[in-house]
Amino acid sequence: MLHDIFIAPFQDMFSAPDFLLQVLWEGLVSGILYALIALGFVLIFRSSRIFNFAQGIMVVFAALTLVGLHAMGVPAWICVLLTLGVMFVLAMAIERVVLRPLVGQPDIILFMATIGITLFLIGFGEIIFGGENKVMITEELGIPTGSWTLEPFGGLLILEQKDVTAVVVAALLVIGLLVFLSRTQMGRAIRALGDDSQAALSVGISLHTIWVLVWFIAGIIALVTGIAWGARAGVSFALEVIAYKALPVLMLGGLESIAGAIIGGLMIGLLEKLFEIYWGQPLMGGNTETWFAFVLALLVLLFRPQGLFGEKIIERV
């Protein structure tokens, strides 16, 4: 038994390094997508202290809008622009109808409001686009669907081109976002508002503008995630479930750290895949990916409640 847990898996890894690489690659791809969703959470939390439960459904809604518009005969790239427009309108509507009337309410009220947004988007999405599964318009968007075959260590490594595209696009998005936040006045305004809202008001920052902006950015992230995940698993409301994987990512990375969200996402993606292949399937009959991340998060909560990268909370007594 101990041999199976502590020795056999590592022997497997070293005896077939090409397969290990394949597993790591698969883990990296899902990790990047978890990281993107977590990033959406972090952005909104940092600028408004709202834990946005609706981030997951925004992914589904963005993907549905994209596919739905295309089904109406609109060219693919125009669909992307229109979907971005829809996400912007959604951001404005959420700010005007939900957030603005609730300014100054306790966090839990705002959290409940985002659950309301989730339910609304599920219902609204179903009415407009129908509830059945759809296929992501991968080819129409010009995303390559072939695969590359590499032969490291004399073995075999297959990289799906759409996964490579997803990783590259996600990386560009994250880099762009970091530059935007650190080098532009709007970015500074977003960070400032998260730090001290009263001081932010005194330097001319409008709460409303920044909230719309941040929710719009979360919408853009949702669209990219929706396309990437939809290309692998199709577009359906079940996609929302993957958003819950972002919760353990946030516990690992902390709610406030962008770097934490990215590293946390990658870690969860990689570890759950490794665990599934080398421990889960041989020892537990597989399907450990559904719960592994949550158990890991529980362990982190036990030993580092502030997350791996969060600020240590010191309370004066």
């Binding site: 500074r188 960070r191 400032a192 998260g194 730090d195 001290d196 009263q198 001081a199 932010a200 005194s202």
Partner: peptide, 9 residues
């Protein structure tokens, strides 16, 4: 009076 700066920046 009580200093309102953006502490993290």
């Amino acid at each position: 009076q009580n200093i309102a700066l953006f502490e993290g920046m």
